[in-house]
Amino acid sequence: MTLSLATSGSNRATSLVAGFARLVVGGEWSAEYGHSVIEAFADTSPTADYCGAGKVIVRAILDSLGGNPGDNVVLPAAVPHGLVEPFRERGVEPRYHRMTQRFGADLDDLITRIDEDTIAVVLVHYFGFEQPDAAVIREIAADAGVPVVEDNSHAALSAPGGRLLGTTDAFGFTSLHKTLPVPNGAVVFSESTIALDDSSFGVADRPSLTDACFLTSRITNPSLQQSESTHEPRPEMARSNPASGDCEETTWPASPTPYESMRAYAADDEPLSWLTAKLLAVLSAESIVHRHRDGYERWLATLDTAPMYDLTPGVCPWIFPVVVDDALQRARDVPDAFAWPRLPRDVTPDDFPVATDLARSVLALPVDRPNQIARLASAVE
């Protein structure tokens, strides 16, 4: 079921959201700056289905692939723990392969992980940049007769070579709130011949607590507003707490949720929010891509370090990754920076030393507010 988000709701509501986008999000709205995000997705793939979170998509993909206890999915070791939870729910083994220092695949190790019980190979594009080993990974999967699932969670609008990442393979998905100023959301692209469980997808028909907390954060925290004026960041922002039914204050970036604590994971199990749907119809894809590229280039010009990735045409970076001695500690010193990824508990230093080293050393620097980068850089250097 592909949702027609651009036309849902009243014209008055859409006008109000457009006004919000101009005042708080930073003026990135389609009437002045080209195609909306919805239009960009529609131009790229006719089968774009929306829901509240990526885990809903992973569940639906597993159902479509017939994932059962005893099956396995081969994926890189450098992934966040939330990605593998839908596998565990169904008794499907997340079978990790080793990595290279640039987030590439150890191809020899990947080949050894595939067996007769493998139902998919996950290809991950990191930070908005195309996986450098994508072509070989697809070839290995094809030789084994296994479908590829394309994880493009980091960059909803990244299109190197003119093709949106996540739209090449049998299944591909992306997270909306990482790239876009929206409360929640994820989108899955799939071949038209593949049926997904429509009951897992949908959009809320009215504003929710998630929307209210997002608005509160954007209005009360000037550093999250993407206009070109300069603000000092505030360390607090509001987020929804479904357990209590209200917004709660938390430090930002929020402290990592322990692997064993699944409150945050369960809280994501909701539809695409009403406000997200409205914003997707008015936010300008071109303007957001330009802003993220501008931020990346400013980090590149400011820091005395070689970039992990070159900013090639069409790329919309999620963050600027930089290698430091202790990413967790440095993230405490740099507003809005964070260490990435928080690995699954079964990705251990003995078995996956490179992935573990990346998790300890990769600091993710924000690119969505270019005007603040000069000030943030002083805390990085």
Rank of each mutant, 00 (worst) to 15 (best):
Q226W: 03
S36N: 05
D326K: 05
D333F: 01
G145R: 11
V367D: 09
V79M: 10
A266G: 04
L209K: 11
D346Q: 13
V56P: 00
E39S: 14
R206H: 13
E39D: 15
E228K: 05
G34W: 02
Q225R: 02
L65A: 12
K178V: 08
A306D: 15
S190L: 01
D198W: 01
P76K: 04
Y259V: 13
I114M: 11
E191L: 12
H231F: 14
P349A: 10
G104W: 08
S284A: 15
L65G: 13
R95N: 13
D205C: 02
D151N: 15
P94S: 10
V324R: 12
E228R: 05
L272P: 00
L165S: 05
F338T: 05
G27A: 07
A77L: 06
G9M: 00
T179R: 04
D198I: 03
Q226Y: 02
Y33D: 12
L363P: 00
P233E: 07
V124L: 04
V74H: 01
Q101F: 07
A53T: 11
E260M: 06
S227Q: 08
D117Y: 09
D368Q: 12
A281I: 07
S378F: 00
Q329M: 08
N11A: 15
L300N: 13
R98F: 03
D143P: 00
L23R: 15
C51W: 05
Q226E: 13
S158C: 08
Y296D: 02
V362Y: 11
P256W: 11
S175M: 04
T112P: 01
V84D: 03
I111D: 11
R88S: 07
V146W: 00
D109W: 06
D326T: 03
I219L: 15
A134G: 05
D246Y: 04
V380T: 06
I194F: 02
F129S: 08
L311M: 10
A105F: 02
A281L: 05
G128P: 01
T118S: 14
V282Y: 01
I111A: 15
V121W: 06
T250L: 11
S217A: 15
N11Y: 03
F127A: 07
A243R: 13
V136W: 00
N221F: 01
A155W: 05
P147Y: 09
I140K: 07
G161C: 10
D336F: 04
R345S: 14
T44V: 02
